[in-house]
Amino acid sequence: MKFGILLTSIYDGSTPARRQRDEHAELVATAEQAGFSLMVAGQHFLGAELRYFQPVPWLTYMSRHAPSMDVATGIILLSMVNPVDTAEQLSTLDVLTGGRARFGVGLGYSPHEFDAFGVAKGERVPRFEESLELIRQLWSGEKVTFHGRFTGVTDARPAVRPLQAGGPPVWIGGQAAGAVKRAARLGDAWYSPPFPTHDELYALHRLFTDTRAEAGSRPAKEFPVRRELLIADSREDAIEAALVRYRARYETYRKWGLNGQNTPVGKSGEELREDIDQRFILGSPEECAAELHKLGAEIGMTHFVYKPHWPGLPHAEAMRQLDRFGSEVVPLLKD
């Protein structure tokens, strides 16, 4: 099992940008020392509540502070961005990191982002699938003529290509059944977000493997999983701390339009506590290690992507959680 650190935003525009940069640099450097082998950064546009720096330059800079770590976009909003630009951006990232990039992609969900890029609701999936097809062709090294519904090239053979033959592995994110089936058909892996419950995660993984088998594809070599994880001296203490984190982060998800299948939004009271219990990995280092081991043993999780940063909480708390994970959880999993 490998460990990844998620470089997410916890600040709006009122916090100095250098502070966010320096805190993320400290996170990846500490994570590398703790045995982490992956850093992940996602993408959003025009967010007022949380400031997302664009992932390719961000990961390129952060890799200077943790040069042994792989990098992954988690995720690029492929239904919105230009596929030619994205193909060359990811190729550049792969070259600059010595062939250690992974291409995490998804549809997105925020209406204000789709509106900004002029993407109609019915175009999201076809734009995504067409873009992914063109990107892979541009990474092939062969001459490409491609005329799709939304974009096209003629006799193109770009000189900007990735180090990895055929391009970085494609991790497709999403928690709805349709997104998981799309990952099975078109991706190299399904990148599971933290939103499904523990039971839903197992069911969606079965859907992924069954769909892949039905399509005649080989079993996926990687299964990256994001779960919210909180270490405390007792499970009850962990749940109480998770309530603070949940309210701060998931309220932003709701504002940005996250909804639909296997998505936790709008919960309160005792229902919220139950929701956290069903989605978070919580408790002592021993309890957290046992849950991670179970995910590896039972559904083949290869990468656990961990998010220590939460809005409203100090960076020192993120570092404390990361330190406990590296010094108390990781050794138990190695044993």
Rank of each mutant, 00 (worst) to 15 (best):
S110N: 10
H303Q: 09
M69R: 05
R235C: 05
Y202G: 08
L229I: 08
A203G: 13
Q54M: 13
F223K: 02
R324G: 08
L6G: 07
S110G: 12
A34Q: 13
A179F: 09
R136Q: 14
G326W: 06
V84E: 00
P193G: 07
T211H: 08
V95Y: 01
A289V: 15
W171P: 06
F195I: 06
S234N: 07
V84R: 01
L272R: 00
M301Q: 06
E133F: 03
F304K: 05
H293G: 09
E298L: 05
T73P: 12
Q43W: 02
F45G: 02
G108W: 04
S140F: 02
R247W: 07
M1W: 13
A156G: 06
Y202P: 05
V329Y: 04
V180T: 12
L50I: 03
V84P: 00
G122T: 13
R21Q: 12
E32G: 11
I135T: 01
G173I: 12
M319I: 07
M1Q: 14
M69T: 06
A34D: 10
T252K: 11
E236H: 09
A156W: 01
F36W: 11
L230M: 04
L204V: 15
L230E: 03
T252V: 14
H205G: 11
F195K: 04
A120Y: 03
A120E: 07
F150T: 12
G187R: 07
L186Y: 09
R21I: 12
V81W: 05
E123P: 00
N82D: 13
F103S: 09
L132S: 03
T252H: 10
V180P: 03
E26K: 14
R124E: 02
G13A: 02
D277A: 14
Q33G: 04
V329M: 04
F280R: 02
P169C: 05
P168K: 02
Q261P: 02
V329I: 11
V225S: 13
S110W: 07
F150L: 05
A120G: 08
A241H: 03
R136L: 04
T263W: 10
Q175R: 12
A48M: 13
R161L: 09
G257V: 13
V56F: 04
L138V: 01
L138W: 00
D277F: 05
F304R: 07
L186R: 14
A290V: 02
S268D: 13
S91Y: 01
R273V: 08
L38N: 00
H112R: 15
E200A: 15
L322G: 03
L207C: 06
P196Q: 13
S268R: 15
H293W: 06
S268T: 15
L186N: 09
V84N: 00
T97A: 12
S327M: 15
G141V: 00
G148K: 00
D237Y: 08
R249T: 14
G106W: 07
Y61V: 15
P331C: 11
T86P: 05
G167D: 09
F3G: 13
